[in-house]
């Protein structure tokens, strides 16, 4: 009984920390982003920003993670347009136009992460 309970707790807690991830590439811009309700982590050339959840930033992390998830809901393009983005999820490679809403979102994501760090500092200051 206890074993089942412990297994369940472990499975549940493991599941809660598992983050989805994406690799985004546009020309020479390339980064990997991991996102979940409790973690945001973006690594790329000249950037490595990891934000773990705490009380004062958990909403910000959840919202950003949801924003990333929402961007993936719509159909992608069948080919890589000129200067377009490759968005890779696991083994699946998707293509997007750099000028679309989604394209602009992902091109700007590294900067959004910088902004989130500053925002976190301001929200958690007290």
């Amino acid at each position: 009984m206890y074993r089942i309970l412990i297994t369940t707790i472990i499975l549940f807690s493991t599941r809660s920390v598992l983050a989805d991830s994406l690799v985004v590439q546009q020309n020479f811009l390339k980064y990997k982003v991991e996102y979940s309700d409790s973690l945001l982590h973006l690594t790329g050339e000249a950037i490595d920003i990891k934000i773990n959840a705490k009380k004062c930033n958990e909403e910000m992390i959840k919202q950003t993670s949801l924003q990333i998830k929402n961007q993936l809901k719509y159909n992608f393009l069948p080919v890589l347009p000129k200067n377009g983005l490759r968005i890779t999820q696991g083994m699946t490679e998707n293509f997007e136009d750099k000028d679309s809403l989604r394209g602009r979102f992902f091109v700007n994501l590294p900067n959004l992460f910088k902004q989130l760090v500053i925002e976190e500092q301001l929200n958690c200051k007290k």
Partner: peptide, 24 residues
């Protein structure tokens, strides 16, 4: 409604100073 704008008050045009890509 879908969480793309978590806080509608934060959509302030004057704050959005065109975040640029990483400077190098």
């Amino acid at each position: 409604s879908e969480g793309d704008i978590p806080n509608p008050l934060a959509q302030m045009g004057f704050c959005n100073n065109d975040l640029s890509a990483t400077s190098w």
